[in-house]
Design a protein around this nucleic acid. Structure first.
Lengths: 237, 237
DNA sequence: CAGTGGTCTAGACCACGTG
DNA sequence: ACGTGGTCTAGACCACTGA
């Protein structure tokens, strides 16, 4: 064992939790008693506990102690990349339209903007092995000096487009995933002739003040898109 | 400012990253120089940097320094609860079938088990406001002594069922999300008479040794289920 | 009051990467 | 050889909790 001491401590506690020796709600030994049992200084113990807190295993309460958490069985990490999913990777993209428009009522509502604000609209069709597999529409609030370079827009994901002029760390993102039937327009774009459902991913971007800055909707052929999510996201050895 | 010093340091660095003063790939000042600029001890600086590392803002490389990360624009946190989503909450559940079966070829493949292994199969229909909105099938590898209590199965999510006999911290989970058309059986269960797509969520559970222990497939009416995901997951002030 | 976790210090030694 | 981050110590003071 040449692991750092704190790793050692972490693993022993994790093991007890996973085996059920320590159950949700149980107190784990106090920092000082852990110092004694491992013969280390308090900062070392605390380093280990901090990581367990961070990974969601325990919670520390000042004045009381540290306790095993109720695991949050509802959280998963989702990998979403507009251009690649479990079934397909998009190899070609056709720009149908890039235009500066005034917002439709839906956009005014959805982006929470005045009617006079200009919007960049982008419509694209994505292909995989020569077949149209997705159609997307993006709406981005226009600001003066915003560079709009067709070549850059064409092959970029929504966050990539936005990152041309803002740090991605300053952006919040929300996805909504649903299943829908295609309307006529989308059926045409994707050459769908029989009943084929769509996997629809709606992507909203916000700035640090929670003001909407963009909306993107991507319509995937149901038979050519699967999304995947997993847990846990830490210790994925 | 009565914030801890390390929080102060964190926020100043975060601010610089969000404003673009520090860009991905840039080095942040060394720990010792941060000690000087803030007039604090090294452990305090390190505490702050550790959090920035943890939140994905920076990466520290021994012998070199700490650097601003390329933000991973593909990760989202997905909240998935079989019983509740953006549109509906399931209020009633009907158990159609609970049975111990031998695995079908698909299950043998999917759960990676011998043909002789017994499987618990559960089929349920979920209702919201009196309407059937989802149908699900669950397959769980049976072990001796596993309690099967109908009442407990009826209203439980898949992870909850499993948590009766294993710590949830010892389980890995994977979701696959897709859009499909219902087959006849599901159309009947959900009383679907016109073309309505399904949002299908496949859930796989694994133990700590990455051996599959369960498979669940939930079929939601497309018009009554939306999933949501977001980023970032930390600092959601 | 004693015990808990939260913050912080001023040192130390190590392994690593670069000149 | 020097600077970097990684680990660790042996103290300290604080605010909080519970008996």
């Amino acid at each position: 064992m040449e692991l750092p001491i704190y790793q050692h401590i972490i693993e022993e506690i994790k093991k007890k939790i996973k085996e059920g020796v320590l159950k949700p709600g149980d107190a784990i030994p106090s920092e000082n008693s852990l110092c004694d049992t491992y013969g280390v200084s308090r900062m070392t113990v605390r380093k280990g506990l901090a990581i367990l807190v961070n990974e969601g295993y325990i919670t520390s309460i000042p004045g009381k102690g540290s306790f095993v958490n109720e695991p949050d069985s509802k959280k998963y990490i989702l990998y979403y990349n507009e251009m690649a999913n479990l079934i397909n990777t998009i190899d070609t993209t056709k720009l149908i339209e890039v235009k500066i428009i005034l917002p439709t009522p839906r956009l005014i509502d959805s982006l929470n903007i005045p009617q006079s604000k200009k919007i960049i609209m982008v419509k694209r069709i994505h292909y995989s092995n020569g077949e149209a597999v997705a159609y997307d529409e993006k709406y981005l609030i226009y600001y003066k000096g915003m560079p709009i370079v067709e070549k850059e827009i064409k092959y970029s994901t929504f966050p990539e487009i936005v990152s041309r002029y803002t740090s991605l760390f300053a952006i919040k993102k929300e996805l909504t995933i649903s299943a829908q039937m295609p309307d006529e327009k989308i059926s045409k774009y994707l050459s769908l002739y029989n009943a084929l459902p769509l996997l629809v991913v709606e992507q909203r971007l916000f700035n640090t003040q929670d003001k909407p800055i963009g909306l993107g909707i991507t319509y995937y052929r149901g038979d050519s898109c699967k999304l995947s999510a997993s847990w846990p996201f830490t210790d994925m050895e």
